[in-house]
Computed example of a mutant assay.
Amino acid sequence: MCGNAQKKKSQMVLGIDMPKFVIPMFIVEAVLLVLFTVPPKRLKQDFISIPMLVLDVVNSFTDVISYIRLFAVGMSGAAIAEAFNDMLSPLFGSAVGIAGAAFLLLFVHGLNIALAVMGVAVHAVRLNTLEFSNGLGQEWSGFAFAPFAKQKN
């Protein structure tokens, strides 16, 4: 791999090099997770928790990826807005074109904003109620909703 390709690989997200402390920090984090997953007094009873740590780390990673999906939803709204701006910009040559483009842009951007708010809200509710509550051991249960059913006394 040439030097330029290696440099681009290390600058994959922000365009800056990863700080030197990140890898040692991950190692310290892994050691602390293993040390504090099971208290030393309960090591004999709960030794199975240590191998399960790998699955817990993967589960936490998937939760982070889910929040990255929220970022992608926001970015898609920005891409849609930019695409409509580019499509309607040729109409700005005349007064009629400006009026038509303004009406269409107002409608499209309003719809895009409404969809973006709904998309983020729905994803956030799903993340908080399903994925993170599972990590707490919380179970969602209840009873069937039947508002028009006869009440038994």
Rank of each mutant, 00 (worst) to 15 (best):
residue 53 L to A: 08
residue 60 S to E: 13
residue 83 A to V: 04
residue 110 G to Y: 05
residue 73 V to F: 10
residue 81 A to I: 01
residue 106 L to P: 00
residue 127 L to S: 09
residue 43 L to R: 12
residue 91 L to Q: 10
residue 83 A to H: 06
residue 55 L to C: 12
residue 94 S to D: 02
residue 59 N to V: 13
residue 75 M to G: 05
residue 34 V to M: 10
residue 86 D to M: 11
residue 4 N to P: 04
residue 120 V to W: 12
residue 13 V to E: 02
residue 74 G to N: 11
residue 109 H to K: 14
residue 20 K to H: 09
residue 58 V to D: 08
residue 10 S to A: 08
residue 14 L to Q: 03
residue 76 S to L: 14
residue 110 G to R: 01
residue 40 P to H: 05
residue 68 I to G: 08
residue 35 L to R: 06
residue 107 F to E: 08
residue 39 P to Y: 02
residue 112 N to W: 07
residue 53 L to V: 09
residue 82 E to S: 12
residue 70 L to M: 15
residue 121 A to Q: 12
residue 103 F to P: 01
residue 71 F to T: 05
residue 122 V to N: 04
residue 25 M to E: 13
residue 65 I to T: 08
residue 24 P to R: 07
residue 69 R to D: 06
residue 113 I to G: 01
residue 26 F to S: 04
residue 97 G to K: 09
residue 67 Y to R: 03
residue 113 I to K: 03
residue 128 N to P: 00
residue 90 P to R: 11
residue 44 K to L: 15
residue 50 I to N: 02
residue 17 D to Y: 05
residue 119 G to F: 05
residue 34 V to C: 05
residue 10 S to T: 02
residue 23 I to P: 02
residue 50 I to K: 06
residue 97 G to Q: 14
residue 47 F to P: 00
residue 11 Q to M: 15
residue 40 P to C: 03
residue 33 L to M: 09
residue 17 D to K: 13
residue 67 Y to T: 06
residue 89 S to L: 11
residue 59 N to W: 14
residue 122 V to I: 15
residue 73 V to S: 10
residue 92 F to W: 08
residue 128 N to F: 04
residue 38 V to M: 04
residue 6 Q to K: 10
residue 45 Q to W: 07
residue 102 A to T: 15
residue 39 P to G: 06
residue 19 P to F: 02
residue 100 G to D: 13
residue 87 M to H: 03
residue 80 I to D: 00
residue 11 Q to N: 07
residue 50 I to W: 10
residue 115 L to D: 05
residue 92 F to T: 08
residue 21 F to I: 03
residue 62 T to H: 12
residue 111 L to S: 07
residue 56 D to H: 02
residue 53 L to I: 11
residue 47 F to I: 09
residue 101 A to K: 02
residue 57 V to W: 09
residue 97 G to F: 04
residue 109 H to A: 06
residue 31 V to P: 00
residue 65 I to G: 00
residue 75 M to Y: 11
residue 52 M to L: 10
residue 94 S to C: 09
residue 22 V to P: 01
residue 67 Y to P: 00
residue 85 N to R: 12
residue 94 S to L: 10
residue 124 A to P: 00
residue 19 P to L: 03
residue 53 L to E: 13
residue 83 A to I: 03
residue 103 F to T: 15
residue 35 L to P: 00
residue 119 G to W: 07
residue 115 L to K: 04
residue 31 V to F: 13
residue 48 I to K: 04
residue 84 F to Y: 08
residue 93 G to M: 09
residue 16 I to T: 06
residue 78 A to C: 09
residue 15 G to C: 05
residue 54 V to F: 11
residue 78 A to S: 10
residue 21 F to E: 07
